[in-house]
């Protein structure tokens, strides 16, 4: 049983960690030149897109300025009392976020519990291994039609789809992390009489935490994908439903704005999770850093 790490290795060097350490010697100039070296390509591409889109008037590829304007009008032009969110923003975001986090949390709790069980018992692991390998390989969207029949359209179907799809990284990573806790650490605990629940919470889980967090992070990214797909197929509310209805109404700037919104959400989730992870796993990255 292998752990799912996703594209984890690449997360660190390019993630928020690296960006924090800006050279501070001659602040203004360094940031300017450094920023230019990083940003010129993005600026160039966006500029080209803007010019080509304006000259060609291609309905499918509206200029970025239009997308940004529509993006703002659709969701963020509301009153200040609502944090500038429009009514549509509240209508779109709320069901999406509720489903996303319910599904993810459900998968996290069940995956963690099952993962601990599998990590502790090699018999349980061997019995369930084929079932789990198969379950992990089922592309979650293929179950959406079935969930629609069982739960009908709505939140229950979406939460089930998300939970089924994202449980695997949590479960397999937890099992792997718990299984590979250093034997010496467990023996040390045994010598000093740390057993049962104390051992689970103070030794096993902290030791497995780096792998568990990696699983949770992959899951969160995957939950966003499944949230969108479940809304594209079986919902009339949420960000995915906005996407599909604007596509069907040929309101392409609105559709593009939806894509931008989802990209921003993806970034945001990643950043927040990285922050949480750094808070809880600082010992791990720092101990690693000293080793190498």
């Amino acid at each position: 049983m292998t752990a799912i790490t996703g594209d984890h290795p690449a997360e660190r060097p390019t993630g928020t960690n690296g960006r924090r350490r800006r050279p501070t010697g001659v602040p203004g100039l360094r940031i300017l030149t450094g920023g230019a070296a990083r940003l010129w390509l993005v600026a160039l591409l966006v500029g080209c897109w803007e010019i080509i889109a304006r000259t060609k008037q291609d309905a499918y590829f509206p200029p970025p300025s239009t997308i940004v304007r529509v993006f703002h009008e659709l969701w963020f032009s509301g009153p200040a009392t609502h944090l500038f969110l429009t009514d549509k923003a509240l209508d779109d975001f709320q069901p999406s976020f509720v489903n996303l986090f319910c599904g993810w949390a459900l998968a996290a709790v069940v995956g963690l519990a099952l993962g601990i069980l599998l990590g502790r018992s090699s018999v349980a692991r061997e019995i369930l291994d084929p079932v789990l390998q198969f379950g992990r390989a089922v592309p979650p969207p293929t179950l959406i039609p079935f969930f629609i029949v069982v739960f009908d359209f709505g939140a229950q179907m979406q939460i089930s789809t998300i939970a089924f799809g994202v449980i695997w990284p949590v479960l397999l990573n937890t099992a792997d992390g718990v299984r590979t806790v250093e034997k010496l650490q467990l023996e040390t605990a045994e010598v000093f009489g740390i057993t049962g629940a104390a051992r689970l919470f103070r030794i096993t889980l902290p030791a497995a935490a780096p792998k568990i967090f990696a699983g949770l992070r992959v899951s969160l990214g995957f939950a966003l994908i499944l949230m969108v797909i479940s809304e594209l197929i079986g919902s009339t509310t949420g960000i995915g439903a906005h996407l599909i209805s604007s596509q069907q109404g040929m309101e392409l700037p609105e559709m593009w704005a939806g894509i931008v919104l989802l990209g921003i959400l993806g970034c945001l989730f990643n950043a927040v999770f990285a922050l949480v992870e750094r808070r809880f796993l600082s010992w791990h990255s720092r101990a690693r850093g000293l080793d190498s």
């Binding site: 993005v42 969108v228 593009w256 993806g266 990643n270």
Partner: peptide
């Protein structure tokens, strides 16, 4: 920067496009 901007876009969001 480009990669960091584009990667988090859930690829299924591009289905309508």
């Amino acid at each position: 920067v480009l990669v960091e901007l584009m990667r988090p876009i859930p690829s299924v969001a591009l289905i309508p496009l």
